[in-house]
């Protein structure tokens, strides 16, 4: 998988896809569908080491570095979170640590899903974004070191 387009381009692409939906139901059905289609994480990774524990749902996240780019895989026990996670992976996976660290992820707000990143939504998604950036930072330090 090569990063054929920039993070911003993918964000814009998703924003455009969501602009086609008229109702919140359509949006959520799409997210649920994304969640169902996300390739499940191998059970060997579904352990505490990779778990980002939210209050209600759980998210597991792994990251691999290949030729200076970071590839993410993730899973969740709740399907809406999984759909949101799937979009984050689509946007961030395959990019360099710097690109990931610089990503503003404004598309989440533009598609009307910002509330899922709020502190009050203890679904682990905010922690997941932080963790993705942490991975990027760790790899950046490693590469420069």
């Amino acid at each position: 998988m090569n990063a054929v387009q920039t993070i911003q381009e993918t964000e814009d692409e998703i924003t455009e896809e969501f602009s086609l939906f008229d109702t919140w139901e359509d949006k959520y059905e799409y997210i649920i569908d994304l969640g169902k289609k996300l390739e499940p994480l191998d059970t060997k990774y579904k352990i505490d080491e990779y778990k980002i524990k939210g209050c209600q749902s759980q998210v597991w996240l792994i990251a691999n570095e290949k030729e200076g780019r970071i590839f993410f895989k993730a899973d969740s026990d709740a399907v809406i979170v999984k759909g949101l996670v799937s979009m984050l992976i689509r946007v961030l996976s395959g990019h360099t640590p710097k690109e990931i660290l610089d990503a503003t992820l404004e598309f989440i707000d533009k598609i009307g899903m910002k509330n899922h990143l709020a502190q009050t939504r203890s679904n682990g998604l905010l922690s997941m974004v932080k963790q993705m950036k942490n991975y990027a930072l760790a790899y950046q330090v490693k590469m420069n070191g």
């Binding site: 919140w24 959520y28 649920i32 209050c55 209600q56 749902s57 709740a78 399907v79």
Partner: peptide, 20 residues
């Protein structure tokens, strides 16, 4: 269905339940 998924969808119908 995860309780959280139910809670998110119900909230969009204006229904406040507790999940978790």
């Amino acid at each position: 269905a995860h309780p959280q998924d139910m809670g998110i969808l119900l909230d969009n119908y204006g229904i406040a339940v507790r999940t978790g």
